[in-house]
Design a protein around this nucleic acid. Structure first.
Ligand code: ZN
Ligand code: ZN
Ligand code: ZN
Ligand code: ZN
Lengths: 189, 189
DNA sequence: GGACAAATGTTATATTGTAACGTCACCTGA
DNA sequence: TCAGGTGACGTTACAATATAACATTTGTCC
């Protein structure tokens, strides 16, 4: 069999060196974006960050990281556990929770409190607590870094004499894509 | 035998202003405020609202409501369950969760996602999702209704084409009172 | 290699939340 | 008056999420 895959142009070659930023904050990922590129880029950044901080992205931690990044939907700890078990290991809950704790501690993933679930950080390496837009139809979550929101929250807290240390902003609703679909069903496009 | 035992239903009257408002949104309750007044006023408003909406604030629901209002700290469902059991009953989890669901559905309490806990609403009777300031030292939570925050969040979501249906804003940190105490310990007042 | 700490394994259990079905009281309409 | 429906609650069992405690392995430094 010829190696040539006829109509595929350059598709077999590497999808551009990691510099491409496939996931941007504040943007809902397109339904058919190159998610492999998301994962690859996220992994590269995670490795860089761990190297810079001189902490170890071990095999398990990397696997958990990849499982969290398996989609743009927040994923539960026990789903991650399932994923780990699909491999050779027979992991237990503490294994997963320890890896998740490590990844959160170093800003590589976030926890979505309203879902008891975890999602890859779109902007790792910088101390922040994003705001999350979570679509109740497709389940996708997009991370915002909106200065206006941070400012407004900061002012509100200050007025009450309150000092914020860990903000949680999770906005459940519907993304533009899912609303288009629903409208389509109602009046035929 | 009387057929109608003074039905609670069908009593459509307007929610009375019920005056005294011991808990205000945006304010951390003082350490030694008259909390009995908080509870009394909250209960009165709850009753007015249920009457106006023609739904029943049954014995159990009222008890759960009072247990949630036992302090200004969010309280877990199983703590409420304990409280119910201290009485005569031997309640089970579904009893508590049903009551909590009812109270949330009618805007009388809120759920704090980041704590898996529940707290009385400071401004019931009007559709809203407050913002919560939660002190990690004393555990007290204060509800804000900050229009600037709502606006900023609305704009951020709109820019992403996202339609918010259920916002969650929970700000963990330290209240002014607890910070004063801590400063006092450091440099002797 | 020996000492030490970090990472992981392992077992058991805690905490939070639901499904499913039964009972009972009350209302409604024939 | 009573059949049938509905809403609230009781009861049992279980699902889903998370952690405590201790044993063992792995990596690192000297
Ligand atoms: Zn992607
Ligand atoms: Zn982030
Ligand atoms: Zn009070
Ligand atoms: Zn409220």
């Amino acid at each position: 069999m010829p190696i040539a895959t006829s109509s595929v142009r350059r598709a077999v070659s590497r999808p551009k060196p990691s510099s491409a930023a496939p996931v941007k904050p504040g943007v809902f990922p397109d339904a058919k974006h190159d998610h492999g590129a998301c994962v690859k880029s996220a992994l590269q950044r995670a490795e860089d960050i761990c190297t810079a901080k001189d902490v170890r992205l071990t095999q398990i931690r990397r696997q958990v990281f990849e499982l969290v990044w398996q989609s743009h939907n927040p994923v539960g700890a026990y789903d991650v556990l399932e994923g780990l078990r699909d491999g050779q290991r027979k992991a237990q809950p503490p294994t997963v929770y320890r890896a998740l704790d490590f990844l959160m501690e170093h800003g590589l993933i976030h926890r979505i409190e309203s879902l008891n679930a975890y999602i890859g950080c779109a902007v790792p390496g910088d101390e922040h607590a994003g705001q999350f837009l979570i679509c109740r139809d497709c389940g996708v979550a997009a991370e915002l870094l909106d200065k206006r929101i941070d400012d407004a929250i900061g002012k509100g807290a200050k007025a009450a004499g309150f000092s914020i240390e860990r903000p949680t902003v999770e906005l459940e609703g519907t993304c533009a894509h899912c609303r288009r679909i629903k409208r389509g069903h109602k009046h035929r496009d």
